[in-house]
Write a protein that binds this DNA or RNA. Structure first.
Length: 209
DNA sequence: GCCAACGTTGGC
DNA sequence: GCCAACGTTGGC
């Protein structure tokens, strides 16, 4: 899910449960969906800073003790066209690159937990761009909260590969043993621990398993 | 607050 | 396109 629309991000703060919002991808038809408001996030400044109510869960990453400003994220988006209430939700990493400043607004997130994670993000934190609901699901690139393209992964890290590591790590206690992609199945915006993030980056240098 | 019906996510 | 997982809604 997700989407993004480049400039138009209203910045409005979200109220709450929002019924649907759609992405407006880059090229998309924009307008109509607009009646609703979007969850969002923005670029300029404020995006995230508020942790007001961050969700209770998630221990480690967040609640921190004060300092730690580096959290990592994984954000899902659908790279293939699909209509949802008449609006194409497609928004691939190529679409992100095509945005002005290679920056987009991440909207379309309805799930409360995912929304809380969006609010907990801080500018400049890094996030993996994950392609979901498509022929080859997996991590394709890196971006920073803003949301701006940083770079493509040196190689595609497929869901299948991540799953293989997740399974073996459950047995060995490896870094991906609790990865949210597998333990919190439907979350479109999820936190990664430093260990998870580093391990996944290290996979770029290895042969696809 | 419980829980059944319903809707969505997203892999396959 | 199918369907499992699981979140959300709403009656009671």
């Amino acid at each position: 899910m997700l989407g993004a629309s480049a400039q138009r991000c209203p910045l409005q703060r979200e109220t709450m449960p929002r019924p649907r919002k759609r992405p407006t991808g880059a090229a998309g038809p924009e307008k109509k969906g607009q009646s609703e408001k979007r969850t969002k996030f923005e670029n300029s400044g404020e995006a995230s800073a508020k942790v007001e109510n961050s969700s209770p869960q998630n221990t480690s990453v967040f609640k921190n003790c004060g300092k730690k400003l580096s959290n990592y994220w994984l954000m899902k988006s659908e790279p293939e066209s699909r209509l949802d209430k008449g609006i194409d939700v497609k928004f691939s990493i190529e679409d992100l690159k095509a945005q002005p400043m290679q920056t987009a607004c991440w909207d379309g997130v309805r799930n409360y937990q995912a929304r809380n994670f969006l609010r907990a993000m801080k500018l400049e934190e890094e996030a993996f761009f994950y392609h979901s609901n498509c022929k080859e699901p997996g991590i394709v690139g890196l971006m920073k909260v803003d949301v701006q393209f940083i770079r493509m992964m040196k190689r595609f890290i497929s869901l299948a590969e991540l799953k293989t590591y997740h399974q073996s790590h459950k047995a060995t206690g490896g870094p991906l043993k609790n990865m949210a992609l597998f333990t919190r199945q439907r979350l479109s915006v999820q936190p990664l621990t430093q260990e998870e993030f580093d391990f996944i980056l290290s996979l770029e240098e290895k042969e696809p398993s």
